[in-house]
Design a protein around this nucleic acid. Sequence first.
DNA 1: CGACACATGTAACACGTTACATGATTTG
DNA 2: CAAATCATGTAACGTGTTACATGTGTCG
Lengths: 198, 198
Amino acid sequence: MSVRHALLALLSEGPKYGLQLREEFEARTGEVWPLNVGQVYTTLQRLERDGLVESEGTDEGPQKAYEITESGAAELAEWLRTPPDLSAPPRDELVMKVLVAIRLPGTDVHEVIQAHRRYLVQLMQQWTRIKEGGAEGDLNLSLAVDAEVFRLDSVVRWLDAADARLKRAAADGPGKQTTVQPAEAPLPKQRRRIGARG
Amino acid sequence: MSVRHALLALLSEGPKYGLQLREEFEARTGEVWPLNVGQVYTTLQRLERDGLVESEGTDEGPQKAYEITESGAAELAEWLRTPPDLSAPPRDELVMKVLVAIRLPGTDVHEVIQAHRRYLVQLMQQWTRIKEGGAEGDLNLSLAVDAEVFRLDSVVRWLDAADARLKRAAADGPGKQTTVQPAEAPLPKQRRRIGARG
DNA sequence: CGACACATGTAACACGTTACATGATTTG
DNA sequence: CAAATCATGTAACGTGTTACATGTGTCG
């Protein structure tokens, strides 16, 4: 629900049309979050269907402008106030890979970890260079790039922690590896969730 | 493409059926990544269609076991070797909110930031408690929870950096706020991407 | 038998992607 | 006029969600 509310926010400044929305969206995110146009139109249709925006009846040129409704403004405010539901963490592809590599015969987890680590560090450097290359006070670019660099950094730190943890576990006793979490006998089902969100 | 390969990995250990796959998936992720059954079946169908798994013809009971094919094993190995394409960073909802709140009249960005910060810190504590409450050497739980805690921590640090940056910008001169990134005149289009991935 | 769990699916939807189709307007 | 660009869509697909439908086997 990220694009949906971003479009609502842009429309809260005044009536706008499809392509314009894409351009402004990308400008606000420092040109680092691309947005395909098709999604803009389909999202606008859903927003209109839900009564959050209205298409203007003005037949001036090929452009079809939408404007936000009261209901839309209310939803936008509500969205800003309410923290997202993180009761279940998102499935992360890299974490998945490591979890898989741990138990897959013929695969060296540490190789997988290090290969991805190198890639991530390289990416971080590229983003940092992009940020420095941007305009001096480009707040949007700065914030968007920072978010990604911070995220990548946390992944790198997780990889390091996982690597150390796995090496420690292997040193403690290779025989223990199968004991860690038996594949059969899938334990008394206790699904862990965090019950936050009002 | 996370569940798809996770199921492939589980099937690389031997033939398994739907519900069993869900249980094992959740066990391997420390019961913190829930997986709905419906997706297991639809994913298995796609995997079979793509020739990566085969359903066994054994009509033993109500269970329908699938086994991995050579092609499937190859795809799994390939997936482990290849780093994901991160040339464009994922759109993050919280980052989006802050970017929106900056320019939305009648909204205090710092309030939004602090409210979400409190929520995130609370979540981190809950996850940490869950990790400590788990079995001593539960490697899967530990890794999965760490990944989420590290991620949340990076978000908190980003929020702090953003807050400081915004306060600095406001102190430098409130008149500059509109100068930061004019909404109209959306700049000479230079879309930023990172061209990694071989 | 009737209730419950196991097990497999399907339906409908939201969101995201790539690719293609179709006009309208500008400009060489 | 022809080509490029602006602008709006649609189609097909992957992935994820929730909810429902349908059997089958077990157990009181």
